[in-house]
Amino acid sequence: MTAQRGKDLLLKVHDGADYATVAGLRTKRLAFNAQTVDVTDAESAGRWRELLGGAGVQRASLSGAGLFKDQASDALVRGVFFAGEVLSWQVVIPDFGTVSGPFQVTALEYAGSHDGELTFELALESAGALAFGVL
C-alpha cells in the first residue's frame, strides 16, 4: 500500500436505508485488539508464558473527531448515543477494504471555544462479529 490521504478514511453509519458518511470528521481511527488466554503452568518450557490460540475475545474500537457539518448525521449520532442503540457502522479504508458490523457509541463529547467552531469526538466499541470486504 502506498501513502494515502487521511481524509479518505471514512466512517459511515447505517441510517436505515444505506450507509451515510458521518459528516465533518477531521480525524478517524480504527483499532483491533485481541485478549490473550494465558495457559502457562509449572511445566511450561523454561517458564515461558504460553498462550491458547484463538481463545481470547476480539474487539474493535472506532473513534473520530471533527465538526458536525450536516444536521442529519448530527441528529443520527446523537440519537443513537442517547438511545444506547447498536447500529451497523462501516469504515472505508482506501485501496484496502471495508470493515463493517455492529458498534455502540460509547462516548460523545462536544467542545468549543469563544473564538472557534463547535467540535465533537465520538468513540464506538464493537458489539458483535465484524466483516471485512475488499475494495
Rank of each mutant, 00 (worst) to 15 (best):
L9R: 03
L10K: 08
L10S: 04
V13H: 00
H14M: 09
G16F: 00
T21S: 02
T21Y: 00
V22E: 00
V22K: 01
A23P: 06
A23K: 02
G24C: 10
R26Q: 14
T27C: 02
K28F: 00
R29C: 05
R29W: 00
A31N: 10
A31W: 00
N33L: 05
Q35K: 09
Q35H: 04
D38K: 01
D38R: 03
D41V: 10
D41Q: 03
E43P: 00
G46H: 09
R47Y: 06
R49G: 07
R49T: 14
R49Q: 12
L51R: 02
G54E: 03
A55P: 08
G56V: 13
V57H: 06
V57W: 00
Q58D: 06
R59Y: 01
L62K: 06
S63I: 08
G64W: 00
A65D: 14
F68Y: 13
K69A: 12
S73W: 02
S73H: 03
D74C: 13
A75K: 07
V77F: 00
V77T: 07
F81Y: 14
A83N: 11
G84T: 04
V86K: 09
S88C: 02
S88W: 00
W89F: 15
W89Y: 14
V92P: 02
V92S: 13
I93C: 09
D95K: 08
D95F: 12
D95Y: 11
S100C: 01
P102W: 00
F103P: 10
V105T: 12
T106C: 05
A107D: 14
L108W: 02
E109H: 04
E109N: 12
A111V: 04
G112C: 08
H114R: 10
D115L: 10
D115W: 01
D115S: 11
D115H: 03
D115F: 03
L124N: 04
L124Y: 01
E125I: 05
A127S: 14
A127C: 09
A127M: 10
G128N: 07
A129V: 13
L130M: 03
A131Q: 09
A131N: 05
G133A: 15
L135R: 05
